[in-house]
Nucleic acid binder design. Structure first.
Lengths: 222, 222
DNA sequence: ATAATATGTTAGATGACTCTAATATTTTAA
DNA sequence: TTAAAATATTAGAGTCATCTAACATATTAT
């Protein structure tokens, strides 16, 4: 097992490569809030440890070994988040920062027990899939709310980002994972969307918010 | 808040000074498993931060500020241990190492919630008192099993050391915190003690084991 | 296709924490 | 009361992870 810092690099490389395939030094520097030379030297170190494949001026890619380590950390993070919500009764908007710390706890017993208590869960409180103990992860196909036609009904399956302010915003709107929503109106001018919610209320979401909400279509015509 | 290393020094200084009043560089080095010069330079650093009072070739003492920090860490450690046992169902013999990691988690929300779920507990699974959120700690008066006369009956209130092998040993003997025991025989030759236990069984403990078991006398004659 | 811009690397330094080897102080015991 | 033993400190170096300043390569846009 590597250091805490090393684990954070691996995790960030994984997250960024999910989005874009390859990761660039500058992206990583931005994400980790360190300067370019710090990333450069750490990436070299990770390369000598065979955790990443890296050639100067080219992108960074995790090796199989690196990917495995990343998935182990992500597993711990997501198990921790769900545990904090389900067992400890914390809100989904406040568990990210705690899980950032718990993900570095080195104890198979601890995580085995959490997994057991939660009955081998498949998704975290934000709808993200939890890799199994072999690092196998369910790859959701994701449709964003902004891509749905008017009249369609869909279930919220996940939200992007653990940013507290975003989740506070969703709490204020009364939206949760699993909620069913119907697209009432898509506003051409600003990209905002009006939803019909189970609560019977109509909810207006800006484009910026709606694009971070992932859904599965359940009814194709209303 | 200091670094993880700093926290571990503070905690160890507190623990050692409980036993002996003042702490010496060599004791600390042994406890933390580092060499003397490492301790020396760290102690100097802690002194500039006003966490310890220290003069070369003299003992080390925590300042009020240092003591407060130590108690905060101990509180987190002991809350974590109890949580791991009561909520997560782990054994008292396996929680120490996990708590060593959890004690460094920086989240008042996390610990506030644990405290709440456990209903503001006063003692950890090994009978050690949990400091309250102001750092106030109940100071038990401790009688060791080896100091009891034959015929006395007492309740086990605590055990010293979180060493797994010791706790495994007590598990094998069937002894737990809260158990009532009667001293049947004190062997002069080797200091071993024979107990009558609630299980009706007679239990033989070596001196080495008995001296780490703390009790409160409940019946002064049998 | 070359100049401007963006991105990446190297060199050298720093702070936290550790080490070994050498030296100093304190304690203890002959 | 001085020599031996135990304990503590200083000096100097190494690793990890970061930084700034200077330089190198790649991309883009005129």
């Amino acid at each position: 097992m590597g250091s805490l810092t090393e684990e954070n690099y691996i995790k960030s490389i994984y997250a960024l490569s999910e989005a874009t395939g390859e990761v660039y030094v500058s992206e990583l520097a931005k994400k980790l809030d360190v300067k370019l030379p710090s990333v450069n030297s750490m990436v070299k170190r990770l390369a000598t440890k065979k955790l990443v494949a890296y050639a100067p001026y080219k992108g960074i890619k995790l090796t199989e070994k690196g990917k495995k380590e990343a998935l182990a950390i992500i597993r711990k993070h997501r198990l921790a988040e769900l545990f904090l919500v389900k067992v400890m009764g914390l809100g989904w908007e406040e568990v990210h920062d705690i899980a950032e710390q718990l993900e570095h706890v080195n104890s198979s017993r601890f995580y085995e027990r959490i997994d057991e208590l939660l009955n081998r869960p498949k998704f975290d409180p934000h709808g993200e899939p939890i890799p199994d103990s072999n690092g196998k992860i369910y790859n959701q196909q994701r449709t964003s709310l902004i891509d749905l036609e008017e009249g369609l009904t869909a279930t919220i399956t996940a939200v992007t980002e653990d940013e507290k302010s975003f989740l506070d915003h969703l709490n204020a709107k009364g939206l949760q994972i699993g909620d069913s929503v119907t697209i009432m109106k898509r506003e051409m001018f600003d990209g905002s969307i009006t939803l019909q919610h189970k609560s019977k209320k109509e909810i207006l979401l800006t484009h910026q918010v709606a694009e971070r909400i992932w859904v599965e279509v359940t009814v194709t015509r209303s």
